[in-house]
Simulated scan of single mutants.
Amino acid sequence: MEATMTLAVPSNNPGGLDAEISEHFGHCDLFTLIQIQDGAIASVDTVANVEHGAGGCVGPVKLLHNKGVGALVVGGMGARPMQACADVGIAVYRAELLGLKHVKDAAAGLLAGSFALMRPEQTCKGDGNCHHH
């Protein structure tokens, strides 16, 4: 992990460290942005998600890229937004959300190195069987 990095976590309103993690990347209310500096949380901000229109979840990826996000913790996401993240240099970490409820849990897990990078075969296939994306 870089010395300074911005982490994004899909969140339910109102966002922030105590907010619940959203189970749906593309349809989350907002993203909590966590500035990590030297292995610790330096600041926390939120940014409203963009409309999930044509192009699927690529709009939120562009939003996060424009905000300088370097890492994203998700329970799951589709192949298209995952590829879009790769294209702009956002590392996607997959966290089983069953044990995570709040944004602070996702931040702590990332800082502890508990999450692996998401693999293409772990993406949601759009068949309705993927609950967390």
Rank of each mutant, 00 (worst) to 15 (best):
M1W: 15
M1C: 11
E2V: 03
T4I: 03
T4C: 06
M5W: 05
L7F: 02
A8F: 07
P10M: 00
P10Y: 02
N12C: 04
G16P: 05
L17R: 06
L17Q: 09
D18I: 10
E20N: 02
E23L: 11
F25L: 02
F25T: 02
F25I: 03
G26L: 08
G26S: 12
C28F: 03
F31V: 07
L33A: 05
L33W: 01
L33Y: 03
I34L: 07
Q35K: 09
Q35V: 07
I36F: 01
Q37D: 03
G39K: 00
G39N: 04
G39E: 01
I41S: 01
I41E: 11
S43W: 01
A48H: 12
A48S: 11
N49A: 07
V50E: 12
C57N: 14
V58P: 12
V58E: 12
G59F: 04
P60L: 06
N66K: 07
G68M: 01
G75S: 11
G75N: 08
R80P: 03
M82K: 15
C85D: 08
A86M: 10
A86E: 13
V88F: 04
A91I: 15
A91T: 15
V92G: 09
L97W: 02
L97R: 12
L100Q: 13
V103Y: 00
A107T: 11
A107G: 02
A108W: 00
L110D: 14
L110P: 13
L111E: 14
L117M: 13
L117K: 15
L117W: 09
R119T: 14
E121W: 05
E121D: 14
Q122Y: 08
Q122D: 14
D127I: 14
D127F: 09
C130V: 11
C130P: 08
H131L: 13
H132M: 09
H132D: 10
